[in-house]
Nucleic acid binder design. Structure first.
Lengths: 142, 142
DNA sequence: ATGGATGCAAAGGGTTTGCAGACGA
DNA sequence: TCGTCTGCAAACCCTTTGCATCCAT
């Protein structure tokens, strides 16, 4: 995700208002690489704005997603939506024990993906998620 | 997924009983490459067994998943779980318009994935899903 | 016959909807 | 001021849980 000020400008260009609630959500997203859920963002915004409602969080996330400034994602093993401020092409790594989700750069030494001819489909996006156990959880479990 | 008879044998080996409900679910899964949801399987089993309950479907799917005979998956854009009888390594292609989900073979000319060193994670499974528009929906939308 | 499986009901989590009142532009 | 945004409540969908009854073995 871009900086908070860039995002504010983008929202204004679209005719959307900058409320304290929206600003708080943007500030959290701009500094969060943990792929938080709506509930986590709700809990954290409430620390600054105790009266914010869950619904405002969902609504703002929905706006950002439809604007293409935020990506909604899910994993195979979780029903909840997670929100990814990183709109560049990259992949994901989920720890099946602690449920932490981290980014993998798309190219350098990481995962490589190529689609020569996907059955005539016009591809607009790809999702690559690896499931495993992070170093800390490997030590903890043995 | 293996044939129905193979699955019946596997279930018996695990001490599980072969009820008409379970057999009906196995029969549907063995001949279904559409990655159905629990609700779709419930609806289709009810055509043969009108008194089957949704809960029996969930329960049987859960058994098969925990046995590794069935894979539960989700896409970025859907909250529901889908069930994949194909436990071989392969990838997926989702049409964002009609929501049909098809398999892509893992290797021949399709997607290639390699993980030299995934940040010290021990990888146990990978998920690759491409999002786009199928040929029929491209024609329909233009 | 006996313990696992079924089906019902209810509860649970995540998300969406409808609307009166509040407030950013 | 005006039109959007907020927050509440309720509803919705998907899934899980608890339990009495049933039935495959």
């Amino acid at each position: 995700m871009r900086s908070v000020e860039e995002m504010v400008r983008v929202l204004r260009q679209r005719g959307l208002r900058i409320t304290p609630q929206r600003r708080a959500i943007l500030e959290l997203l701009a500094s969060d690489a943990s792929h938080p859920t709506a509930e986590e963002l709700f809990r954290r915004t409430r620390e600054k704005l105790p009266d914010i409602s869950r619904m405002t969080v969902y609504s703002t996330l929905g706006e950002l997603v439809s604007m293409g400034e935020l990506v909604e994602m899910r994993t195979d093993v979780e029903g909840v939506g997670r929100y990814d401020p990183n709109t560049d092409s990259h992949h994901h790594l989920l720890c099946l024990r602690c449920r932490s989700l981290v980014d993998i750069p798309a190219r350098p030494g990481g995962v490589h993906i190529s689609v020569p001819d996907a059955l005539g489909y016009r591809i607009v996006r790809s999702q690559v998620t690896l499931y495993g156990y992070c170093p800390a959880c490997q030590r903890a479990e043995g």
